[in-house]
Design a protein around this nucleic acid. Structure first.
Length: 584
DNA sequence: GCCGTTTTCGGCCCGACTGTTTTCAGTCG
C-alpha cells in the first residue's frame, strides 16, 4: 500500500469507529494520523523500515502496528473487527451533507440501510422522516444532498476559487461599516483545490453584511442564516460561507477560519498549556478575560509562536518551526525576475506574438522571458531548421527596453528518453525545457528512465511539468520522484513548478522534497497566450506551500546568472553513458 | 488511541446553526 491508500484505510477505521459508537477520541486519533499520512511527503514504508513511524505526530504503539499491517497485508485487524459490526457501505453515507455518524448509525439500526440508493428511497417514501431526531425537513435536506452529489459539484482549482472570492469580497467591502473582508480556509492557504469559499468580514454591525451577502447576485439558495454566520449556494453548485465578527476579534477569527483544522488544534493546545483559551473571538485568560485578538499575531503570541504564512498551516512542521524561530522566508511573487517557459505563435498551440508577450511581461515587471516553443514531435512544432531560425528572430527582437528575451525551446522527451532535436542545436540555445507529452501512462520504470535520460543529456536546464497531471482530468504519471531528484541534484538540472492552474506540477509536497534533495526549482507560467503570463502566481502558491524560499527558485536570479550556470553545467556535464542507466 | 513546560492518568478545540424537541442532540467548519 502507498501513503494515500494507508491514509484512506485509516480514515475508514475512523469512520467505522464513529459509526460503531465506540470511544469518539479513538476515532479522532485514527483520523488525525490519516491526515498526517496523507500529507507526508516521503514513503511511509521507509519510516517503517527504519523504525521511525512513531516519530510522526499522533502515532503510538497501536497505530504503528496497524500501519505495519496495512503496508504488508493491505488490511488490518482493527478494520476487520469493525467491519464485522458495521456494514462496509455505511461510511459512504457520511460523505452526504447533513448525515453524520449518529444519523448513519440510526438509519442502519432502524432501517438496515447502508448505501446511498436505499437512503434516497427511504427519504422519498417517508420512512426516514419517522426516525428519532429526524423529520420531514431533514429528510428533504438529505435528499437534496444525494442529488447534489450525483451532479458532482466537487472541488475547483484554487485559481478559479480565487477569482470567485475576489468578486464576492469586493461587494462585501462596499457594505458600510465593513473594516475587513478576507477569504480564509483552504483558499487562503492556497491549497490546490478548494471546496467551499470561506469568507470573513469584520464589522461592528453584522446584520447589514449578512443581508447584503444573501441577496448578492449569483446566490441560488441560502443554506443557513443566523445573526453572524450564513452559508449560501452559488451558481455552478459552489458554496460560500460567511462569518461576521467584531473588529476586535478580526485577527483571532482570521486565524481560526484559515485553519487548517489540525494546525488550529496544535496552536490551541499550545496556548492552553500557557494559560490562554483561543476561539474565533480572541485570546482569553484562565478567568475568561479577553486579552487580545484584533491581530492575527495575537493568537500566535499567546501560543508562544511567531506568525506563520497561511500556506504553511498544515501542522506539517510549521508549529515547531514557529516555536524555534526557524520558519522559512517563503518565496514571493515579487522575487521572481523572469518567466522561463512561454510559448509564442511560432509553433503549435501558442497564440501570442513576441510583441504581445513582451508587452504583457513588461506590464508584469518581468526582467526576462524565455521563449520556449514546442519541438517537432508536437503538431506544428519546430524542427531543427525552424528552431534555429526562430532563435535568431527571438535574439534579434527589439523589446524597446522591455524584458530580455532568451531563445529557448520546450523539447519533447521521446518514449526512449532521447530528445527530439539534435544536442548541438539544443546546446546553442539560452534555455532548454524538456517535457514528456506522450505515453504518460508508461510504467514507473520506463517513465522514470525517460526523465533520467533527459536529465543526463547535458543540454537540458529543467524538466517541464514533471508528473504530467491535470487536476480533475488526468492523474500524475507514475514517476519515481526520489530517483529523479537524485539524478537532478547530481546533474544540476532543475525541476519545473508549472503554474498552469490545472497543472500545479510539481505540487507542494514534491516541491518540499525537491528542495530537501538539493534540487533547484523553476516556477514557470507555461503561458500559451500573453494573458496567461500572470498565472505565474499559481506556481508561487505551490512553491510556498512546499516551503520554498527564493534561494530554491532559479528564476529569482537574473538572466546573466542563469546563462552562466547553464554554460558551467554544460562544460562539466558527463556525457550520457553508452549503456542505458539501470533502475534496479 | 495518544500524550505530557501543572499530567504516565485523565484529559482530548470549540462555537454557530438547524431541526427536533420542549431543553438539546447532531452536524458542520
Amino acid at each position: 500500500m502507498d501513503n494515500a491508500e494507508v491514509a484512506s484505510a485509516l480514515a475508514e477505521v475512523a469512520d467505522l469507529l464513529e459509526l460503531s459508537g465506540e470511544n469518539p477520541f479513538k476515532a479522532r486519533a485514527y483520523r488525525r494520523v490519516a491526515e498526517v499520512v496523507d500529507r507526508l511527503g516521503e514513503p511511509l514504508e521507509e519510516h517503517e523500515r527504519s523504525g521511525r513511524l512513531r516519530e510522526l505526530p499522533g502515532i503510538g504503539e497501536r497505530i504503528a502496528k496497524t500501519i505495519g499491517e496495512l503496508l504488508h497485508t493491505g488490511t488490518c485487524a482493527e478494520r476487520d473487527r469493525l467491519l464485522r459490526m458495521v456494514p462496509a457501505g455505511l461510511p459512504e453515507l457520511l460523505r452526504l451533507e447533513g448525515v453524520g455518524p449518529q444519523t448513519a448509525a440510526t438509519v442502519w439500526r432502524e432501517l438496515r440501510i447502508a448505501d446511498v440508493e436505499s437512503l434516497e428511497k427511504a427519504a422519498r417514501d417517508g420512512r426516514l422522516a419517522l426516525l428519532p431526531r429526524l423529520g420531514a425537513q431533514r429528510a428533504k435536506a438529505i435528499l437534496q444532498a444525494v442529488e447534489r452529489r450525483r451532479k458532482r459539484a466537487g472541488r475547483m482549482p484554487v485559481a478559479t476559487a480565487y477569482v470567485h472570492a475576489q468578486s464576492l469580497l469586493a461587494r462585501l467591502r462596499r457594505v458600510p461599516g465593513v473594516v475587513l473582508a478576507e477569504a480564509c480556509g483552504s483558499l487562503r492557504r492556497r491549497c490546490e483545490t478548494v471546496g467551499d469559499l470561506d469568507l470573513l468580514v469584520a464589522a461592528r454591525d453584522a446584520a447589514p453584511v449578512v443581508r447584503a451577502f444573501v441577496s448578492m447576485p449569483g446566490v441560488t439558495a441560502v443554506r443557513a442564516e443566523g445573526p453572524t454566520r450564513c452559508a449560501v449556494r452559488l451558481r455552478d453548485g459552489l458554496s460560500a460561507d460567511l462569518r461576521v465578527v467584531a473588529p476586535e476579534s478580526a485577527g483571532a477569527a482570521l486565524h481560526y477560519f484559515t485553519g487548517s483544522r489540525s494546525h488550529n488544534i496544535a496552536v490551541r493546545l499550545r496556548a492552553l498549556r500557557r494559560g490562554f483559551k483561543l476561539n474565533e473571538y480572541g485570546v482569553f485568560d484562565r478567568e475568561g478575560r479577553r486579552v487580545s485578538g484584533a491581530e492575527e499575531t495575537d493568537v500566535f503570541e499567546a501560543a508562544g509562536l511567531s506568525w506563520s504564512d497561511p500556506e504553511l498551516r498544515e501542522d506539517a512542521g510549521e508549529v515547531e518551526a514557529a516555536r524555534s524561530g526557524t520558519l522559512p522566508r517563503l518565496v514571493r511573487d515579487e522575487d521572481l525576475q523572469g518567466d522561463l517557459h512561454v510559448h509564442s505563435d511560432a509553433s503549435s498551440d501558442g497564440r501570442s506574438t513576441l510583441e504581445e508577450i513582451v508587452r504583457e511581461a513588461a506590464r508584469l515587471g518581468r526582467r526576462y522571458v524565455a521563449i520556449t516553443d514546442h519541438s517537432r514531435s508536437r503538431p506544428l512544432g519546430l524542427d531543427a531548421e525552424a528552431l534555429a531560425r526562430h532563435a535568431k528572430t527571438v535574439r534579434a527582437f527589439d523589446t524597446q527596453g522591455g524584458p530580455r528575451l532568451l531563445a529557448g525551446v520546450e523539447v519533447d522527451i521521446r518514449s526512449d528518453g532521447t530528445l527530439d532535436l539534435p544536442a548541438p542545436l539544443l546546446a546553442s540555445l539560452d534555455w532548454v525545457v524538456a517535457s514528456i507529452h506522450t505515453r504518460l501512462q508508461d510504467p514507473r520504470g520506463a517513465l522514470t528512465l525517460r526523465v533520467i535520460r533527459a536529465i543526463r543529456s547535458g543540454v537540458v536546464d529543467v524538466i517541464g511539468h514533471p508528473t504530467g497531471r491535470r487536476i480533475g482530468y488526468r492523474d500524475a504519471s507514475d514517476l519515481d520522484l526520489e530517483r529523479v531528484l537524485e539524478e537532478a541534484a547530481r546533474a544540476g538540472v532543475a525541476l519545473e513548478v508549472n503554474a498552469q492552474p490545472d497543472r500545479m506540477d510539481l505540487n507542494d509536497r514534491s516541491c518540499r522534497l525537491a528542495a530537501q534533495a538539493g534540487v533547484m526549482l523553476v516556477v514557470s507560467s507555461d503561458a500559451h497566450v500573453a494573458a496567461h503570463l500572470s498565472n505565474l502566481r499559481c506556481g508561487v502558491w505551490s512553491a510556498r506551500r512546499g516551503w520554498l524560499e527564493a534561494r530554491h527558485v532559479l528564476n529569482t536570479r537574473d538572466a546573466d546568472e542563469l546563462l552562466e550556470r547553464r554554460a558551467h553545467r554544460m562544460a562539466h556535464a558527463r556525457p550520457e553513458p553508452a549503456e542505458q542507466p539501470s533502475l534496479f
